[in-house]
Computed example of a mutant assay.
Amino acid sequence: MLLSEVDTVENISKEEFLAKYFRPQRPVLIKGLAKSWEAFDKWNLDYIFEQAGEQVVGLYDNKPADPNKATDEPVEFMKMRDYIKLIQSQPSDLRIFFYIITDKLPALLQNFSYPDLGFKYFKRIPTLFFGGSEARVLMHYDVDLGDLLHFQFEGKKRVLLFAPDQAPYLYKVPLSVHTVYHIDYENPDYTSFPALAHAQGYEIFMEHGDALFMPSGYWHFNRYLEAGFSVTLRSFPSSPKRLLKMLREVFVIRYTDKIMRKLFKGDWVSYKQKKAFRESEQALKRKMERNAS
């Protein structure tokens, strides 16, 4: 992988953000953006422990999804208080995925303000994600194709970002929003995944209060370096073309894959993984031929 540093700023105006990052669809890390919130001191695991400790939450781990089950089925369930105690006391790869604040912890909505950066937020689903110090999230892009403002709290996190045009080198799985399961982004094996060596992206390290702007369709891999959590704010699709693409992703591609997975289970998953390899190998071959000509 060919990784470079993302633009990093301490403060940014709406005008500068729109001109330099939002309109050209370029990522940027805004250091300490959440620290301007009046209730910033409540953005910690202890506050969530107090407010939502009795809630039962579904947990996911680092293992590939079982082909005989739905991809969004948790591996186990636990009370929030027990989960927070676990990740604060020992290494764990368990994480909570897509915890919608408006449904499960609306009091938290009073503790932040939407940054005035010039794009329209989808305020129905500000979403929390949690992870232990061993948790990682498979390389993927978000199916709704919204622009994302992703805040990190408590522990540190490593993020890899790739623009949509880098998908041919990432071993994208057909009819899915993720890459093949067995790529280790912490120690990439370029012998097994030679196309990956040609993927150009960004490496970002996030700390408590930082915000990362991820443009629509950007691929991202998240690795929790310490126990922590994050909140993602989403925008509406910013053009009719993107809206139509989002509807196709959600209602055609996603449900076609669900039906095929239910019918053919492991055979379907295996077929898609092999096809991902073939397509990335072909993309690499075309690139090498262009470079040689």
Rank of each mutant, 00 (worst) to 15 (best):
E134N: 13
R81S: 14
Q88K: 15
K42I: 08
L225M: 12
Q51I: 14
I30W: 07
D142I: 05
Y218M: 00
Y21V: 09
H140P: 09
Q282C: 02
A107T: 13
V269D: 14
R95A: 08
P164K: 05
L86D: 14
T256R: 10
A135Q: 06
Y218D: 05
Y224T: 08
F193R: 03
R124G: 11
D257C: 04
V57K: 07
P194F: 02
V231Q: 02
E203H: 00
Q110P: 05
Y218E: 03
A227S: 15
G58Y: 08
P164G: 04
D184S: 07
F17D: 11
F193K: 06
M206C: 06
L18H: 09
L233E: 00
A195S: 08
L94G: 06
K172S: 04
L2R: 15
A276Q: 05
P240Y: 01
W37C: 10
I84D: 11
G53I: 05
K69W: 04
N222I: 15
R286F: 00
V9E: 09
S192L: 12
I84N: 08
I183C: 06
R223D: 04
R286Y: 01
V75M: 10
V9G: 10
M260V: 07
I100R: 13
H178P: 00
A197T: 01
V252M: 08
E73C: 07
Q110H: 14
F130Q: 10
V231D: 02
Y218N: 05
K274P: 05
Y114F: 07
R95H: 12
S216T: 12
E50H: 12
P64F: 02
H150C: 02
F213I: 03
P164A: 01
P194T: 05
A34K: 10
A276L: 01
V28R: 04
F129I: 10
S192G: 12
L161D: 01
K265I: 00
R124V: 06
Y114R: 03
R124I: 05
P237Y: 04
E279P: 01
L94Y: 14
L29K: 14
K79S: 14
F17G: 13
F97Q: 14
L161P: 08
L233Y: 03
R124D: 13
P91N: 10
A135C: 10
V252K: 09
H182N: 15
Q200H: 03
D82Q: 14
S176W: 01
V9S: 11
L94H: 12
L117C: 11
D61T: 06
F205H: 13
A39H: 15
F119K: 03
I87H: 11
G266M: 00
V173N: 01
F264N: 09
D189S: 09
R242L: 15
E154Q: 13
P240W: 00
Y171I: 08
G228L: 00
A65G: 14
E281L: 11
A197K: 14
W43P: 06
D116E: 15
V57D: 11
E38R: 14
V143D: 09
K245R: 13
L108Q: 03
P67F: 02
M80R: 09
V177F: 05
P126R: 05
F277V: 11
S176D: 12
F213D: 04
T8Y: 07
E281H: 14
R124F: 07
S230Y: 04
R248F: 09
I101N: 02
R26Q: 13
